[in-house]
Amino acid sequence: MTRQHQERRKQTAAHNKHVEKKVKSLQEQLTTRLWESQQTRETATQALAERDRTIAHLQNRLDAMDRAYEKILHISGDCSLDFVLAKTAEASQHCEEVGMTIAVEHKER
């Protein structure tokens, strides 16, 4: 009976040691994962802040472009849509003519 009792104590002690090692290992893993999680969170926060700065910068540029276009339209005297469309059509026609001229010259060569 004493021998069985001693054997059980040894088994229990060995089991306790194994469980303690496992707990220590899991605690270390938890610490590592918590640190990694914090690093990831900080990186994400920085990325979001950078994104927000970029969006604000681009919005400012867009607003400036809008103001510039409105200024151009008001300076031109006739800021009607028909005027803008006529100028666009005129520029498009000119580009087509220049393109055809270049194509003909290239073909002749």
Rank of each mutant, 00 (worst) to 15 (best):
Met1Trp: 09
Arg3Glu: 08
Gln4Trp: 01
Glu7Trp: 00
Glu7Leu: 03
Arg9Ile: 11
Lys10Ser: 00
Gln11Gly: 02
Gln11Leu: 09
Thr12Leu: 13
His15Leu: 05
His15Gln: 06
His18Thr: 04
Val19Lys: 04
Val19Phe: 06
Val19Cys: 03
Glu20Ile: 15
Lys22Val: 07
Leu26Pro: 02
Gln29Met: 10
Gln29His: 14
Leu30Gly: 11
Thr31Gly: 08
Thr32Met: 05
Thr32Arg: 07
Trp35Pro: 01
Ser37His: 13
Gln39Met: 13
Arg41Asn: 10
Glu42Cys: 09
Thr45Asp: 11
Thr45Arg: 13
Gln46Thr: 06
Gln46Pro: 01
Ala47Trp: 13
Leu48Thr: 03
Ala49Gly: 01
Ala49Gln: 07
Ala49Met: 08
Arg51Ala: 05
Arg53Ser: 09
Thr54Ile: 07
Ile55Ala: 02
His57Thr: 00
Gln59Ala: 06
Asn60Ser: 12
Asp63Cys: 04
Met65Leu: 15
Met65His: 14
Arg67Thr: 14
Arg67His: 13
Ala68Trp: 14
Ala68Phe: 12
Glu70Gln: 14
Glu70Phe: 10
Lys71Glu: 11
Ile72Arg: 07
Leu73Ala: 09
Ile75Gly: 02
Gly77Pro: 02
Gly77Trp: 10
Asp78Phe: 15
Asp78Lys: 10
Asp78Ile: 15
Asp82Cys: 08
Asp82Pro: 05
Asp82Tyr: 00
Phe83Met: 02
Thr88Met: 03
Glu90Cys: 12
Ser92Tyr: 15
Gln93Leu: 04
Gln93Asn: 03
His94Phe: 00
His94Leu: 08
Cys95Phe: 01
Cys95Arg: 09
Glu96Met: 02
Glu97Gly: 10
Val98Tyr: 02
Val98Ile: 05
Gly99His: 02
Met100His: 10
Thr101Asn: 14
Ile102Leu: 06
Ile102Cys: 03
His106Ser: 06
His106Trp: 01
Arg109Gly: 11
Arg109Glu: 15
